[in-house]
Design a protein around this nucleic acid. Sequence first.
DNA 1: TGGATTTATTAAACTAGTTTAATAAAGAAT
DNA 2: ATTCTTTATTAAACTAGTTTAATAAATCCA
Lengths: 210, 210
Amino acid sequence: MPGTKIFRFLAVIVTIVDLRDLQDKIRSFVKVSEADMQFALQFYKRKDIKKGTFLLQPGQYIDQFYFVKEGCVSYYTEDDGIPQVIEFFTEGYFFTDLYAYIQEVPSNTYLEAMEDTVIYAVSKTDVEQIFDHSHQLERFGRLSMQKAFINNVQRIHQIKNLSNQERYIQLQEKRPSLFQRVPQYLIASYLGLTPVGLSKIRRRLSKHYD
Amino acid sequence: MPGTKIFRFLAVIVTIVDLRDLQDKIRSFVKVSEADMQFALQFYKRKDIKKGTFLLQPGQYIDQFYFVKEGCVSYYTEDDGIPQVIEFFTEGYFFTDLYAYIQEVPSNTYLEAMEDTVIYAVSKTDVEQIFDHSHQLERFGRLSMQKAFINNVQRIHQIKNLSNQERYIQLQEKRPSLFQRVPQYLIASYLGLTPVGLSKIRRRLSKHYD
DNA sequence: TGGATTTATTAAACTAGTTTAATAAAGAAT
DNA sequence: ATTCTTTATTAAACTAGTTTAATAAATCCA
């Protein structure tokens, strides 16, 4: 059955090509032997998520760690029915609801695809296998967590020391594509204000350039 | 010289007793063999810091990682001459200016002892030796960074979703001793408001209990 | 394509903070 | 103990946001 053979062959190629992003990401942090890299990659499963799909909702457990190949996932809680956005995960981000993942308790957050999204998923037990198997990959885990930590320290500093207007401008500069991908009221929430407040800021800024 | 002998003996005891806090902290994250633990501990140096001393000032490089045995260190930037407190490090905290430490660039932050403080210090090259030497200690590094990351995610969520008054009350509940150890205007800064603003909140709350 | 729904803007009244400045209280140093 | 300096409170005017509600614009989808 030559048809079957070709199909399998193509499937293998697709898998290798697809995981290139993930490999590059890992190698940007540490040197990893080809054997260790292949050991890790075997556990990752590709998932295609349609826009509007929830990877996680309040009350659910989560034992998966994700990597965004393509697309955008919003991470938020809901207070009095109003979404409070913690982060937007886009290409190259690792993510999960880390608190629920680590504590193994039900989450109180949402993970929702903002557009058709492709992610690689790996389970907690497989992550542990990977880290047990390779000291270098454990180091990658430490360094990527360190980087995420620093990002948050800087974010805290920005929230405290910049005005909402300044943070809006900065977000436009650093992640301009977000404004095409995500409704404005979620960006308002991410910046820590109401849709009305963000609209005022936008008007103020546009008038400035008249 | 029996006097000398006794002195040395006591010195050894003191060192072992002193590092107990650090060992306990590490063992709360991972199992470590006695040999690996001793390998790590040999690199730590105790430092006694007088109140008001700066461990770090803007423009300086930092290649030390610290652990607070006793005391309190504030971590802040200065904008227009006004301190902007990022964190207060008290007993059991690991700290450094992680950004400057990792990037090996001059810091733009202060690390200042708020009271007479005892810390254990280890250099970056020694940290790297420790992690190279032991996979388990590398894991400790990953897990402690992970915990710090989660704390910051929760802090971001609080800053965004709680009022200043709510965050003031929460700080009183979670870290009551801070109010004895640190001047109020620095706590105001930590909470993201002015001394005047914090004073108003305190008055509002005290009136509430009349 | 038209109708329904979601999203963004505007207005108006309000509020929790700000800034500046003066005063009071507390702490440190000789 | 007295002075000097730092820290905390209060008042008053102001501001950048809020809430609610109405309207306009954009998007979805059958």
